[in-house]
Structures are given as structure tokens and as C-alpha cells.
């Protein structure tokens, strides 16, 4: 499976990268990091006339096609950008033509690569039943609040990740690992995102709203698949505080790989 880590997983979210690789390999699959990948651009350009902001994603998608096999990503933001640009290349004639003209790839790219998030890969390619078989140290009833945020789910007609208002993929993962999934009402509400850099107080209000809902639901820990959600939930917490972990950290613990991770 081709793997796109992205910039943040090489720096501030190294544990997310390492956790994904280690747990995939425990499941018998090697993540092959794409050679010479570039930053995905961090945000999907909503402007239809913005071609340059899509080019690095197209390079990545076409490199994955050339390598053979689909493309898996772990960072919610990279996954969002890659999936949406991929859809543009498949469905938007003007964007496809202009991007291909500019890049002059060996073979014109038209959205052929299958892009999946690591969670989708676990659900659709591996299967949670199989994941369950690898659990060596069940989470022992730990009450886990799966936090989805925005980028995995919306817009659902392009992301096709899960039901946008009632997702269940992380809940099923938590149950497979022996934990108790605690659904909370604001699990797909924005954490504050990049607005944290422009108006921290505004972003903190979003974070507080998310965390208060998780606290009320009785969670002991919140899980996320996004380094920016992680940052906001950790640094923007007010009265309501909860430990926040990447979903891969729980996977590693349940697979009995966590001690290896500490070394």
C-alpha cells in the first residue's frame, strides 16, 4: 500500500506516523512511503480557478498510480485535500485539463488512484473482525469519545468516508479494541481549525464546546486523527479538560506494541 505521511507527521505528529506504520505492519501490511512527496497544501482550494494549489496533490496522486496500488493517508487534512483534488481530476474537465497541461506528466492523470484514510483502510480492506484478532491487551472498558471534526466527513458527497451526521467508524474501532465508545453530540463539530492563528479566543470557544460535550457524555479520553484538532483540543481547553490521543495510540496499546513505541 502506498503511504503519504505529509509534513506534520514528519515533525509535530511523529507518533501518528510511527503508530500507523507499526500497527499496519502488525496487520501484515507494509506502508510504502511515496518517494519525494511534497506538502499537500494543507487546505483544499475551494476556488475553482485555483490550479496551482492543487498541483502538489496531483503529483502525489499520479505517483501513487505509477507505483501501483491505492494511496493511504493518516492525517485528516492531507486525506481531505488528496481526496477532493482526486475527485476534481476525475469529474472537473477544466481543472483536469489545466492541471495536466501544467504538469506534463508521463501519462495524463484523471483521478484513477483510490485514496483512503487509514481508518477506512482498517474498516474496508482489513475489517474490524480481523483487527480484533490482533488485540493482545484489550482496552478494558476504557470510555473513549471518538472526535471526528470536519475534514474526514464533509462534504460527504466527495469524502464518502462515513455518514456525515452519524459516523460510526471510530466507534467500531474502539469496540473492536475492547473499549467502550462514548458518542457525544459535538463529535463532528469544528475544533476551531486554522482560526487559532488569527483569533485564538474564537478557536478556544469551539474547542470548549467540543470538550464540554465529551465530558458530559462521560468520556475518559478523546481520540482524533488530526494533528490540528489535537493541538486545539490540548491547547484550547478551558474548564473542561480530557486527555486527547491519536487513534493510533490506542491501536498500539491494544496490539501490545505500546512498550516498543516508548523505546
Amino acid at each position: 500500500m502506498n503511504y503519504y505521511p505529509g509534513c506534520t507527521l514528519k515533525t509535530k505528529a511523529k507518533q501518528l506516523d510511527a503508530g500507523a506504520r507499526r500497527t499496519a505492519s502488525a496487520l501484515g501490511v507494509e506502508m510504502r512511503e511515496l518517494p519525494e512527496w511534497q506538502c499537500c497544501g494543507a487546505v483544499y482550494p475551494l476556488a475553482e480557478d485555483e490550479i496551482s494549489g492543487r498541483l502538489s496533490a496531483v503529483r502525489t496522486l499520479s505517483a501513487a498510480l505509477e507505483n501501483g496500488g491505492g494511496l493511504v493517508t493518516v492525517c485528516s487534512a492531507c486525506h481531505h485535500v488528496l481526496k477532493r483534488v482526486n475527485a476534481d481530476m476525475a469529474d472537473n474537465e477544466l481543472i483536469r485539463r489545466r492541471a495536466n497541461n501544467y504538469l506534463a506528466l508521463k501519462k495524463a492523470y484523471a483521478g484513477e488512484t483510490r485514496v483512503v484514510h487509514y481508518l477506512e483502510w482498517l474498516r474496508d480492506d482489513i475489517g474490524f473482525e480481523e483487527v480484533k484478532k490482533h488485540v493482545a491487551r484489550p482496552l478494558d472498558g476504557l470510555k473513549v469519545a471518538p472526535y471526528y471534526g470536519c475534514l474526514l466527513l464533509r462534504p460527504s458527497d466527495v469524502m464518502r468516508f462515513d455518514r456525515p451526521d452519524n459516523p460510526s467508524i471510530m466507534e467500531k474501532l474502539v469496540e473492536a479494541l475492547g473499549g467502550v465508545a462514548v458518542p457525544f453530540s459535538r463529535r463532528s463539530r469544528c475544533c476551531g481549525g486554522y482560526v487559532a492563528l488569527d483569533d485564538r479566543e474564537s478557536a478556544q470557544a469551539m474547542t470548549e464546546s467540543v470538550l464540554s460535550s465529551a465530558v458530559k457524555a462521560g468520556a475518559e479520553v478523546v481520540i482524533s486523527a488530526c494533528p490540528l484538532c489535537m493541538y486545539n483540543l490540548k491547547n484550547g481547553a478551558g474548564e473542561n479538560k480530557l486527555p486527547v490521543r491519536y487513534f493510533t495510540e490506542l491501536l498500539e496499546e491494544a496490539f501490545g506494541l505500546a512498550d516498543a513505541a516508548k523505546e
Partner: peptide, 22 residues
């Protein structure tokens, strides 16, 4: 203005996102 708003934990993704949005 950006350096003053950074801290040790802020992910790259947030910086690139803000620069691209604003």
C-alpha cells in the same frame, strides 16, 4: 506577524493552512 503566534506544539499543517486561507 506569524512568528509571534507560533508555539512549540503548533503543527505545520496549521501554519500552512492559515497562510493559504488568509
Amino acid at each position: 506577524l506569524v512568528p509571534a503566534r507560533l508555539d512549540e506544539e503548533l503543527p505545520q499543517q496549521a501554519i500552512v493552512a492559515a497562510m493559504r486561507k488568509y
